[in-house]
Computed example of a mutant assay.
Amino acid sequence: MIVIKVGGGAGIAYDTLCADLAALTRAGQRCVLVHGGSHETNTLAEQVGHPPRFVTSPSGYTSRYTDRKTLELFLMAAAGKVNKLIVERLQGLGVNAVGLSGLDGRLLEGPRKAVIRIIEDGKQKVLRDDWTGTIEKVNTDLLHLLLNAGFLPVIAPIAASYAGEALNVDGDRAAAAIAVALGADTLVLLTNVPGLLRAFPDEHTLVRQISRTDVEEYLPLAQGRMKKKLLGASEALTQGVGRVILSDARVAEPVSRALTGEGTVIA
């Protein structure tokens, strides 16, 4: 079992990813795909006059501030356009993909964050009207139902709160939670760089191997979203996933190449 997360940034080669998934599926490999939607959400938000706002937590992690309007835009972009275009590509390649979000069937479930704390202009502030959450439960019955029937689940990172509200959740950590729940051998995190870089953005400084016990030592090297990817990797490994590979989504056969060890392998 392989769980793949592909980022939602600009420059992601979805056509080559889907072709690779089709080949792996034909070879008998069972896969679950989790995807982002950041670029399409940003574009839509600018078009409707509600530009994105990014905030930094006291611990140094940057994320999208999700008020209710932003949540609805994220639903449109990620669970709508991005999800269905990936499903369309896979269906065209003969893969019986099913697109859904973590809200559907309470596939992903957890508490809504009542408030979030951020650092802005050197001061700690509290933001309310936040529609993000953390994942505590994965509906494995639903996933096994789909997988055992021959479907490839394509999942947008939206969860259900315990009150049934839609929540924006981190895609890398969603993929990690799914990988743990399914007992996956491998979690592949694809992005628009070759892996963790010692001197970002120099792609010749790729870190090729990290021991699962040393992940925290590499956090200072991580720039931007890569911090969340390392956090998701650590969570997956400590809960039983065999290995995590951070690899390049811009190349041909991105998943197959990652499985051969291209990228940063954490095990």
Rank of each mutant, 00 (worst) to 15 (best):
Y162P: 01
G164P: 09
G164K: 07
E165L: 05
A166W: 00
A166N: 02
V169I: 14
D170K: 00
D170Y: 00
D170I: 04
G171E: 00
G171F: 00
G171D: 01
G171R: 00
R173H: 11
R173N: 04
A174W: 02
A177I: 08
A177T: 10
A177D: 13
A177G: 14
A177F: 09
I178M: 14
I178Y: 10
I178D: 11
A179K: 00
A179Y: 02
A179L: 08
A179S: 12
V180T: 12
V180E: 05
V180D: 04
V180F: 01
A181W: 07
A181Y: 10
A181N: 15
A181C: 14
L182Q: 08
L182E: 08
L182C: 10
G183N: 05
G183I: 03
G183L: 01
G183S: 02
A184I: 12
A184L: 11
D185M: 07
D185F: 05
T186P: 14
L189R: 04
L189M: 15
L190T: 12
T191F: 07
N192S: 14
N192W: 05
V193L: 12
V193R: 04
G195I: 04
G195F: 02
G195C: 09
L196V: 11
L196Q: 06
L196C: 07
L197W: 02
L197A: 04
L197E: 11
L197N: 05
L197F: 09
R198P: 13
